[in-house]
Design a protein around this nucleic acid. Structure first.
Length: 521
RNA sequence: GCAGCCGUAGCUCAGUUGGUUAGAGCACCAGAUUGUGGAUCUGGGGGUCGGCGGUUCGAAUCCACCCGGCUGUACCA
């Protein structure tokens, strides 16, 4: 049945979605296994939730009439209730814990890997379906729970092959920022909308630098393309206070040159000293004081666990999401340089993050339930592993199956018997299932990455033999052969064995191949 | 969402001031070779030139709109 070309369906994928091949799936699974091992070692247990939740359970993104799918994929169920594809794993976990609260041990420590969906503009390395790998502790309000998250993140980095020094877990606290707001309010109240602008500006410090942040805090900023971003609209004096919080000395009026950075990895010093200098610079009120005490405790616990500032570092510029964090926030940053598409070296950047969200479970209950956790961006971490050539992703790809050629269509049963014998012996094998001739079957085996093929035509059958052709060795030998006649006559790396010795001979070849690293594809 | 650049075969790209039947390399398929993956040679399939309108005797080429891609920016739970 031939379809008219014009009505033929075009095979295509919506943007922001991707297919994956066997090599990528295998490498990704290896990475997930490493992460899982770390979580298990810390005593976390697996727990899964479905892709779809009631929209109101997911948080602020309730679909409205005008833009029902803004940011999140939503649709109406038969009973007119709004459902949504989850956009992270934290909100569904909060729902799960609240729903089974009485039955769960508390603190409840669990982990999960899963696909999440966001309906927003995709870009390079950004998809509308992507995987996160989360761990959470619900029911523990102590900074020790947050400290454990940081240590576990550090362990994950090393478990997947990121060297010590190539990553840092940066820690700050939403309460610390709240303390900043308190302190700045002495010079005039800051409205909620303004404060969101301040947080957004602070979050961009590493990308825009001090000048850019200052502009975004006050009037606004025009980027090189001429696009204007509206500022938060706080006073220059308040903005100076924000800059002081971030570790810059001087004021705007004294000139930009006097600003001095105290963040980032260049100035690694004692976490306690960093917190002290911040306390002295700011003069915090009660909220800020509490945040300082929490972070001090956290730093003390991680240090006791053997994690110093080169691995877990207090950094006030960490903000994270604007929505539900209530206490410590953390971010796993890879500090090595990679070339961007213009060839300039840039820091690889964040591969995951998290924080304390004491209010999220409480939305389903009368009272706050303390909770903390973090999330790893799986595909982002995966591309980082490629960049550092971690053995987890560069490890040799597996060979394809042994292919038993079908030389004589009348004797499919014989070939099936050989294939089954190989499988029973634990050898990955298949009988050729297509309709093509021998040459095409050889090409098929080649494309599948077969280590060898089994050949039994009429001649071999008459002698009670099978031919085994080592495809890897054969390809190597063929390079030296120029003419096709010679190639045909030579039958490189091919030999006959008695039919009864088939399995044994195949194993010998596979064994020999596995010892020769030069065959690695 | 806003701004800029770009859409020609599966991929990478040619295509003259608007002018016959739109090309190349790679990839794919077949033959040379009853039954041998490589190399070589010969042949073949594959295009509504992103889409839809317009200007024109004539559009891959010029114009408008739409769609898609890339880049920056905004948002990012």
């Amino acid at each position: 049945m031939k379809t008219e070309k014009s009505n033929r369906l075009k095979p295509r994928l919506p943007r922001g979605f991707a297919d994956r091949g066997s090599a990528e799936i295998a490498a990704s699974e290896r990475m997930l296994d490493k992460i899982r091992e770390v979580y298990e070692r810390y005593g976390f247990e697996p727990r899964e939730t479905p892709f779809i939740e009631f929209s109101d359970a997911l948080g602020k993104f309730l679909p409205d009439q005008d833009r029902p799918n803004e940011g999140v994929f939503s649709f109406k169920d038969d009973d007119e209730q709004w459902l949504s594809l989850r956009y992270d794993l934290t909100a569904p976990l909060a729902r799960h814990v609240a729903e089974h609260f009485d039955a769960l041990p508390k603190p409840f420590r669990s982990y999960r890997a899963g696909w999440v969906f966001r309906n927003e503009k995709p870009g390079p390395g950004r998809f509308r379906q992507f995987m996160q790998f989360d761990a959470d502790t619900v029911g523990a309000g102590s900074p020790a729970a947050d400290a454990e998250m940081c240590m576990m993140m550090a362990d994950v980095m090393e478990a997947v092959g990121i060297s010590r020094g190539d990553y840092v877990i940066k820690v700050s606290s939403r309460k610390l920022l709240e303390g900043l707001r308190e302190a700045l309010s002495a010079r005039g109240a800051i409205a909620d909308a303004q404060w969101l602008g301040v947080l957004r500006a602070v979050d961009k410090l590493d990308r825009l630098g001090a000048d850019g942040v200052f502009q975004l805090l006050t009037g606004g900023r025009k980027d090189e393309s001429g696009d204007f971003t509206k500022g938060a609209g706080i006073s220059p004096e308040q903005a100076d206070g924000v800059m002081r919080f971030l570790g810059f000395a001087g004021t705007e009026a004294q000139g930009r040159a006097s600003y001095k950075a105290d963040t980032g990895r260049d100035l690694v010093c004692d976490n306690r000293a960093r917190l002290e200098s911040l306390a002295n610079a700011m003069g915090f009120g009660p909220t800020g004081q509490q945040a300082l005490r929490d972070l001090e405790a956290l730093a003390q616990y991680t240090r006791a666990g053997g994690y110093d500032e080169s691995r877990i570092l207090v950094d006030r510029s960490v903000v994270r999401g604007l929505e539900y964090y209530t206490g410590p926030v953390f971010e796993a940053e890879l500090t090595f340089m990679v070339p961007n598409d213009k060839g300039e070296p840039v820091v690889f950047g964040s591969v995951g993050g998290g924080g304390r969200y004491d209010g999220l479970v409480g939305r389903f209950r009368g009272e706050d339930v303390p909770a903390t956790g973090f999330s790893i961006g799986v595909s982002r971490l995966f591309s980082a592993l490629k960049a550092v050539k971690s053995p987890i992703v560069t490890g040799v790809a597996e060979h394809g199956p042994v292919v038993v050629l079908v030389m004589d269509r009348e004797r499919v049963e014989d070939y099936q018997r050989m294939t089954s014998a190989l499988r029973s012996a634990g050898v990955k094998a298949e009988m050729y299932l297509g309709a093509a001739g021998m040459k095409a079957q050889m090409k098929y085996a080649d494309k599948r990455g077969s280590p060898l093929v089994v050949i039994q035509g009429g001649n071999e059958k008459a002698k009670g033999e099978v031919q085994i052709k080592d495809l890897l060795e054969g390809a190597r030998e063929a390079k030296a052969i120029a003419s096709h006649e010679e190639y045909k006559a030579a039958r490189p790396a091919q030999f006959a064995v008695p039919e009864a010795k088939l399995v044994e001979a195949v194993r010998d070849v596979l064994e020999r191949q596995s010892r020769k690293s030069e065959y690695a594809p």
